[in-house]
Amino acid sequence: MNAVLALARHEARLLASLGLWAARRTRGAGEGVAFGYARGQGTMMFGLAFVIVIESVMMSLLLRNHPVVQRVWFLADVYALVLVVGTHAASVVRPHVLGADGLRVRRAAHVDLRVPVERIARVRRELRTTHEPAEGELNLAVGSQTTVTLELSEPVPHVTLLGRRQDVRRVRLYAEDADALVRAVEAARTVAADGP
């Protein structure tokens, strides 16, 4: 039952993201500096949406003699299309954010990891195109790429979409302007190290 509720909350966030995207607003950026990552997946997501539309038209033609099945299939395709566009919208309106409380690393509506700046031991610009799952690592690839690697001095708890908790010591993420993100994190680390 918890998994069903988690999925329902996730889909509600996707639908809310469509409204924020239409209003050209972001969520959770507040007083921080936002770093986008959605451009890296835009072409792929809209390509997937186009395939769903073509598939819907073709299935509608194939099922024209079975109107009940045709309608059910069409509704499933519309739902899938809304989820695809909602996922892209969530990526646009939920950027990575560097603020006073640390770096907020996000991926659409299903990952929102807060990393305190003082726990970032090292940050570097690193382009990776392969990501083998490993204990203590969180890989948030966009278009199969990550561009920034964070090494943490202490683990940070991450709760997955379905509620599983894992401790993360290394985070790999994609940012459109990876150099600017690395510079901003380095500057924030310096300020945190100097203290008040």
Score class of each variant (00 low, 15 high):
residue 123 V to P: 02
residue 75 L to C: 14
residue 102 G to A: 11
residue 157 P to Q: 09
residue 106 R to A: 09
residue 79 Y to T: 13
residue 71 R to M: 14
residue 172 R to M: 09
residue 68 V to S: 06
residue 68 V to E: 09
residue 87 T to Q: 07
residue 105 V to D: 08
residue 153 S to Y: 02
residue 84 V to S: 05
residue 153 S to I: 07
residue 171 V to W: 01
residue 154 E to L: 08
residue 115 V to R: 04
residue 175 A to I: 02
residue 153 S to P: 01
residue 74 F to R: 09
residue 66 H to T: 15
residue 70 Q to A: 12
residue 83 L to T: 00
residue 104 R to Q: 14
residue 133 P to E: 07
residue 160 T to Y: 05
residue 112 D to I: 05
residue 124 R to V: 13
residue 121 A to N: 04
residue 162 L to K: 04
residue 155 P to D: 08
residue 89 A to D: 02
residue 83 L to N: 09
residue 80 A to N: 14
residue 101 D to W: 09
residue 67 P to M: 09
residue 109 A to T: 05
residue 173 L to I: 07
residue 134 A to P: 02
residue 131 H to E: 02
residue 72 V to M: 13
residue 67 P to G: 05
residue 108 A to F: 11
residue 83 L to C: 13
residue 65 N to P: 00
residue 86 G to Q: 04
residue 121 A to R: 15
residue 110 H to N: 14
residue 157 P to I: 08
residue 128 R to Q: 10
residue 145 Q to N: 11
residue 92 V to F: 10
residue 101 D to G: 12
residue 125 R to N: 09
residue 121 A to V: 00
residue 159 V to E: 12
residue 103 L to D: 06
residue 148 V to K: 03
residue 150 L to V: 10
residue 101 D to M: 06
residue 161 L to Q: 10
residue 66 H to K: 12
residue 106 R to V: 06
residue 164 R to Q: 09
residue 119 R to Q: 12
residue 140 L to D: 01
residue 143 G to R: 02
residue 65 N to T: 13
residue 100 A to C: 02
residue 115 V to H: 03
residue 135 E to I: 03
residue 144 S to G: 08
residue 78 V to D: 07
residue 155 P to G: 11
residue 145 Q to R: 15
residue 135 E to L: 12
residue 164 R to G: 00
residue 148 V to R: 01
residue 123 V to Q: 07
residue 84 V to Q: 08
residue 152 L to W: 02
residue 156 V to N: 01
residue 129 T to W: 12
residue 70 Q to S: 13
residue 175 A to T: 04
residue 129 T to I: 11
residue 119 R to K: 15
residue 100 A to D: 15
residue 136 G to S: 03
residue 96 H to G: 10
residue 86 G to I: 06
residue 165 R to F: 00
residue 107 R to P: 00
residue 87 T to S: 14
residue 120 I to P: 01
residue 71 R to W: 14
residue 89 A to Q: 01
residue 148 V to I: 11
residue 75 L to Y: 14
residue 105 V to L: 12
